[in-house]
């Protein structure tokens, strides 16, 4: 069962491990027929499309739960929403074939809303977006297994626009070549030689690819 859930403002500081544990316990509370892993420390088989950073809000986060018996999406949503805290509700669910590829491998990109908490900084940053994106390369440092590595993040930024004091960006989330929103903010601020302002990040949508088009992951 694929399900879309929210991680609201109040929970934005809850880390991914805690979200996973909360989801495990909610699944247990729901009484739904879920499947457990084999072995010494059995846990419910649930995977998440992508770990959301601590501090970020998630509007349409996605998980996949392996069921032991057939359950309708409606029954799943209703049982789970009774078992989840109000700040972490499920908006929709969809039955999936057990043999579908993993959510992680289906994930291609995500849409972010980056709220800049300093108005002056926001104006400067948004005014410079075009010249920033007009660079041939956007070199940034990224942690890798062998220390810091220079990467060109330009091809990982599919789009970015300003709206009020918010940057709306679609960034690559593909395995091995993902771009985090703070990478974008840091690079933009470095480009402008300014201090990085405080931002609040919302991941508003996870996306996959369907015949070359980016579509919401849950529609695949």
């Amino acid at each position: 069962m694929m399900a879309v859930f929210e991680k609201s403002e109040r929970l934005r500081h809850i880390g991914h491990l805690d979200i996973q544990r909360t989801m495990q316990r909610a699944l247990r509370r729901s009484g739904l027929p879920v499947k457990y892993s084999q072995g010494f420390n059995p846990h419910i088989l649930v995977t998440f499309a992508s770990a959301l950073s601590t501090g970020a809000i998630g509007r349409r986060e996605i998980m996949d739960v392996t069921m032991a018996e057939d359950v309708t999406p409606e029954a799943f949503v209703s049982a789970m929403n009774g078992a989840l805290p109000p700040d972490m509700q499920i908006s929709c669910a969809k039955t999936m074939d057990d043999r579908h590829p993993s959510l992680t491998s289906m994930l291609y990109a995500a849409e972010f809303e980056i709220r800049i908490m300093d108005e002056d900084a926001a104006q400067r940053m948004i005014a410079s977006l075009d010249s920033f994106m007009a660079q041939e390369q956007i070199i940034t440092l990224r942690k890798s297994k062998s220390g810091m590595k220079e990467v060109d993040m330009k091809p990982l930024v599919y789009s970015v626009q300003g709206e009020g004091a918010t940057l709306r960006a679609v960034l690559s989330q593909a395995e091995g070549s993902s771009c985090k929103p703070d990478m974008l903010v840091n690079a933009l601020c470095a480009f402008l030689s300014m201090d990085t302002p405080r931002v609040i990040v919302t991941r508003s949508m996870l996306m996959g690819q369907d015949e070359g088009r980016m579509v919401p992951l849950e529609t695949l």
């Binding site: 109040r10 809850i14 078992a83």
Partner: peptide, 20 residues
């Protein structure tokens, strides 16, 4: 409080809103 939580260790200590 929201702004402070960005700077502290173990912010979930202060969020509230837990189940039950």
């Amino acid at each position: 409080i929201e702004a402070m939580l960005e700077k502290v260790q173990k912010a979930p200590r202060y969020t509230g809103g837990e189940m039950n």
